[in-house]
């Protein structure tokens, strides 16, 4: 084994040496965003997900640009998979003051899990985190199978039976479906236990399930090929490509609009950087500035376009305000989410 290991290590090192060339490392910037607070420091980005996941792809896209605009000595990416991001969230909630660690992942989980009373989410209060900037967000879309008799959201409302919803477990799409069912007045039968999006997608295409919710880009392929049919979007802005797909908040009764709007806002917090509650205010301001600067870097925008990792920035201050407002409006969500979880137990 040794022999073989020796031989291949050389190859590995060779591959390692190629890395910066391939990635086209941007050089150090002259002027640093955030007043040079992070100059020559180390920033650790805890990515809430595995090395192959979407969060990591985005974290890696931004890594060199964060370094460029902060002047940090190193921006290190640490994968912290588990509990749909709750593991990383609990970790960042507890770090010591002055820690260089920043959470990167899906904010909606952090808000929804405590509302639903999830085990593992009792320890933290989402409002107390420092929101440092959103990288991207995409509308979530409810799709039915291409061959399904259901062609529109009105068809769902007219169903004489519950809407069969294949799901991995209690992720944000599960909660969204519960809220939609409540607002639009149809029953949802959640079928949990599927092994990820591929599995639920197939269940919908086959007709085992009526429909499921995914990010827009994840369903784009099957939608284009006619395997799936989008019938509703949970977002605040219509898609320019598909203007005919209704938006949830626009079609629900007035009494339910606030609830659905709250859900859409939660979903739109999406992929973001978050700092611990005890983060130094100077560091908060500096990191927010760095994220904003990185996300408007033309080089990054070009790379993002080329590799189809589209960005949709929102600055940290706005995000913080949104989350604080949410804490007030989202209380109405809690009973719906808790009931949905109870249903599958």
């Amino acid at each position: 084994m040794k022999n073989e290991v020796e031989k291949s290590r050389r190859k590995l090192l060779l591959a390692g040496a190629m890395a910066p060339l391939v990635m086209g490392m941007p050089g150090r910037a002259l002027a640093q965003a955030g007043g040079g607070y992070y100059k020559d420091k180390v920033i650790i980005i805890n990515v809430a997900g595995g090395a192959s996941g979407g969060h990591t792809r985005y974290a890696r896209l931004l890594q060199p640009y964060l370094q460029k605009h902060s002047g940090a000595r190193e921006v290190r990416i640490v994968n912290m998979p588990g509990g749909g991001g709750l593991k990383a969230a609990n970790h960042i909630w507890r770090v010591k003051p002055g820690s260089p660690e920043i959470f990167f992942g899906n904010v909606s989980t952090l808000i929804l899990a405590p509302l639903a009373g999830s085990a593992g989410a009792q320890a933290f209060d989402p409002v107390k985190f420092h929101y440092l900037g959103r990288v991207t967000s995409e509308p979530r879309v409810l799709c039915v199978g291409g061959k399904s008799a259901i062609k529109s959201i009105q068809d769902v409302q007219k169903l004489k039976r519950p809407f069969v919803f294949p799901s991995q477990g209690t992720d944000e799409d599960f909660y969204t479906m519960a809220v939609l069912g409540d607002a639009l007045g149809f029953k949802v039968k959640a079928v949990t236990g599927y092994e990820g999006n591929a599995d639920t997608s197939l269940a919908v295409i086959k007709g085992d399930g009526d429909g499921h919710i995914t990010g827009w880009s994840e369903s784009l392929g099957p939608i284009r090929s006619g395997d799936k049919n989008p019938i509703l979007m949970v977002t605040s802005q219509p898609s320019p490509d598909y203007p005919n797909i209704p938006i949830a908040a626009n079609i629900v009764p007035a009494s339910k609009r606030a609830t659905v709007q709250a859900m859409a806002t939660i979903l739109e917090t999406h992929r973001s950087y978050i700092g611990p509650p005890n983060m130094d205010p100077q560091a908060v301001a500096a990191f927010r500035a760095v994220v904003t600067a990185a996300l408007s870097d033309p080089e990054l925008l070009a790379e993002s376009k080329k590799t189809e990792r589209l960005v949709a920035p929102m600055d940290g201050v706005t995000q913080q305000k949104r989350v604080t407002e949410l804490a007030k409006t989202s209380a109405s969500l809690a009973p719906i989410l808790i009931a949905a979880v109870k249903d599958i137990q």
Binding site: K2, V5, R9, L12, L13, G16, R76, V78
Partner: peptide, 14 residues
Amino acid sequence: ASLYLLFVAALQMQ
């Protein structure tokens, strides 16, 4: 040293 090179340097283990 071999473990370091493999796991930390090449495989980015923290």
